[in-house]
Write a protein that binds this DNA or RNA. Structure first.
Length: 686
DNA sequence: ATCCCTCGAGTTCA
DNA sequence: CTCGAGGGAT
């Protein structure tokens, strides 16, 4: 391996390979229009690596092989920006945007009817970065830091393929094209796309590492790695939008800067608009308010800049921000606040739910003061403590959630949360089933559960008693007028009118709503009872299968398990529910109030209603299916296996084990003919 | 036994 | 809307 035989031919070969690799990179990472395949790229890269290995003296820092440095750093060194990286003043809402326009008019001494040209650019939510190029070669890259001085992260930035190691000079023949300056600081934002962010978090989750709260944090974390190999694995990208210091080139406007950056091989976001006046700016901002959600990366606003550089220098800067630009911020989806307390709520099923009570804060236009923490594990996973400063957001724009704790703000006085061992409402024991996430109050007469249960009963999706809300339910319980859902049906308007702030009119409305609910379909009633694991769908399936409430009440676990989507857990839950004395009492009162809904198309015959019937052997006059449909129509539930809950077995010819089982369990058995006779006598309307 | 899908339950604010 | 659990398919 000698250094002496580096011929011109070899140099030319190396340079050709580098040119082709740089171009492939540019087309792939900047233009998103690859022209060669990954395999072709790899083979070019391998060829270059081999040549460089053979002629180490030919390796330059700008070679495409040098994107991932070999050795990790021990620390970052400071980097002084040649021109400061200013921060922008914020504008919230159109009024502040127009105020900015007026300030510009005033400072430029322009009449207000003479419009100023502005450039609108997306404001990326990433990490601001400055790249320094000397004679077209990347010599340094740094974070923004305090604006004057940042950290030198050149090795990490070189791993970003969208950043050219060499500026392009191929478009010089294009009219208005700018030559490669001898010195330029290119300013931009390093970001992670949503896809990449999720990929990284998935990987971290799998390997048990803490996940990043958002793409910006992930991007920042990735660039602050001392080992560039790690940064290289986080496939960051970078949009460039401006210049700091520059020599050997001149610009007339911000728009020309963006064009030049594009020509030089930098990635420039295409969603830029030159607006002839502030109205167009406002319209463009408004346009992107919804469109921004469809972008594959995060933006948190729009940057509005005075286009003309002449105007820009006339406007100058105040303090640390230029007067010629403003950052329009869309209403923040995230905010920071302080956890005042973590309280525990008791749900209808006894579930204890920790809820964070926070210093009220505005998030996307709404004041938020509480957020669910779901369960104890969740609290500890996020390590939320009372007194913590937390980042919150509205998940799906609606429900507030705690995203993360700002650990840097910890004072050491924060209090850890522990699930109480006694119910905060009724002081009964709290149990957490092994393997389950929720802790439950086991108190059968827990007032909180009774309250939630009644509220659930009246709710729109259950019995739909319009006009009866939590407040009224509380008063009714407190005054002793009701103890369970069924009591609602015995209320009289006069009784309710006695209550605080209960006008005669609204008492009548409530009374009418209760009476109207008496005709609710069976599925609603079953759902309203609030059986654990029985929601709207399962309630509908049970109603459909059994046809009346008695049939459900008497059903065994086996019979229940025949219902579609009902398995052992749901079946056991239903049986347990109907075994409770309280349930029997409620059902009795419902009947007394005349509530016993039937499913349409089913008749409730004396002989069959609520019975569980099994057919066995070969039927001669009916098919098995017809027979099952028949008893279903008459109010019974057909079943396929015999248990002690079975009311009746209809045995056809050559009946086998089911008949034996019926005999051994003492279940009545009849023949097919007897069955048909029974149907006839039932008086059913066939 | 394991994965995927659906359903249930709890939650916020205007 | 999100998480967790149950059911059913594989």
């Amino acid at each position: 391996m000698s250094t002496s035989n580096l011929s011109n031919e070899v140099i030319a070969k190396i340079e050709d390979l580098r040119r082709r690799l740089d171009r492939a990179n540019y087309l792939y990472y900047v233009k998103d229009q690859p022209e060669i395949s990954d395999a072709q790229y790899d083979s070019l890269m391998r060829a270059l690596q081999e040549l460089e290995a053979r002629y180490p003296q030919a390796v330059t820092p700008e070679s495409p092989t040098q994107r991932v440095g070999a050795t990790p750093l021990t620390e970052f060194t400071p980097h002084v920006h040649l021109a400061p990286m200013l921060s922008l003043a914020n504008a919230f809402g159109e009024d502040e945007l127009r105020a900015f326009d007026e300030r510009c008019h005033k400072a430029l001494e322009l009449p207000s009817d003479e419009p100023i040209e502005y450039v609108c650019e997306l404001k990326f939510d990433g990490l601001a970065v400055s790249l320094t190029y000397q004679d077209g070669k990347l010599i340094a890259g740094a974070t923004r830091g305090n604006g004057m001085q940042g950290e030198n992260i050149t090795e990490n930035l070189k791993t970003i393929k969208a950043i050219p190691l060499n500026m392009h000079n191929s478009k010089l023949d294009k009219p208005g094209a700018k030559p490669i300056p001898n010195l330029v600081e290119v300013r931009g934002e390093a970001i992670l796309t949503h896809d990449e962010f999720h990929r990284i978090n998935d990987e971290r989750e799998e390997s048990g590492e803490p996940t990043f709260a958002n793409p910006r944090n992930a991007a920042a974390g990735s660039l602050r790695q001392l080992d560039p190999k790690i940064t290289a694995m986080r496939r960051l990208t970078m949009f460039c939008y401006g210049v700091g210091a520059y020599e050997g080139v001149d610009f007339e406007s911000q728009n020309k800067v963006l064009c030049a950056l594009g020509d030089w091989g930098f990635k420039v976001n295409p969603n830029v608009k030159v607006c002839t006046n502030i109205d167009e700016v406002a319209a463009y901002i408004n346009d992107w308010h919804t469109k921004k959600e469809k972008l594959p990366y995060d933006i948190d606003g729009m940057v509005v800049k005075v286009n003309s550089f002449a105007y820009q220098s006339q406007l100058g800067s105040v303090a640390r921000s230029p007067r010629w630009a403003v950052a329009y911020k869309y209403p923040a989806m995230q905010a920071t606040t302080v956890i005042i307390d973590i309280i525990v709520g008791v749900g209808r099923t006894g579930a204890l739910t920790p809820v964070a009570i926070m210093e009220p804060v505005e998030v996307s236009g709404v004041t938020v003061s509480r957020a669910t923490l779901h369960n104890e594990d969740e609290v500890h996973r996020k390590d939320v403590r009372i007194g913590d400063t937390v980042v919150i957001q509205r998940a799906g724009e609606v429900i507030p959630e705690v995203v993360e704790v700002v650990k840097e703000k910890r004072k050491g006085t924060e209090v850890e949360f522990h699930m109480p061992t006694k119910c905060p409402v009724c002081n009964a024991d709290v149990e957490r089933a092994p393997g389950e996430a929720v802790a439950r109050c086991v108190g059968i007469a827990c007032p909180a559960q009774i309250r939630e249960n009644i509220i659930h009963f009246t709710s729109r999706t259950a019995m739909d008693m319009d006009g009866i809300g939590p407040a009224l339910v509380d008063q009714l319980i407190e005054s002793g007028l009701i103890h369970d859902p069924a009591d609602l049906f015995f209320l009289k308007a006069e009784n309710m009118a006695i209550l605080d702030r209960m006008a005669q009119k609204s008492a009548e409305n409530a009374y009418n709503a209760i009476q109207a609910s008496k005709t609710a379909p069976l599925s609603r009633l079953i759902y309203a009872l609030g059986i654990r694991h029985v929601g709207e769908r399962t309630a509908a399936a049970l109603a459909e299968h059994f046809g009346n409430i008695d049939a459900v009440t008497n059903a065994s676990e086996e019979v229940l398990a025949e219902v579609p989507d009902v398995g052992p857990v749901v079946a056991a839950s239903v049986v347990r529910f109907f075994h409770q004395e309280e349930t029997a009492e409620v059902l009795r009162k419902l009947k007394e109030a005349g509530i016993d809904p039937k499913v349409e198309g089913r008749q409730q015959t004396e002989a069959f209603a609520g019975k569980s019937i099994v057919f066995t052997g070969a039927l001669t006059k009916l098919t098995r299916e017809q027979a099952e449909q028949l008893v279903y129509k008459l109010g019974a539930s057909p079943s396929s296996s015999v248990s002690k809950k079975t009311s009746l077995v209809v045995a056809g010819e050559k009946a086998g084990s089911k008949l034996d089982k019926a005999h051994s369990l003492g279940v009545p058995v009849i023949s097919e003919d007897e069955f048909l006779e029974m149907v006839k006598e039932s008086g059913a309307d066939l």
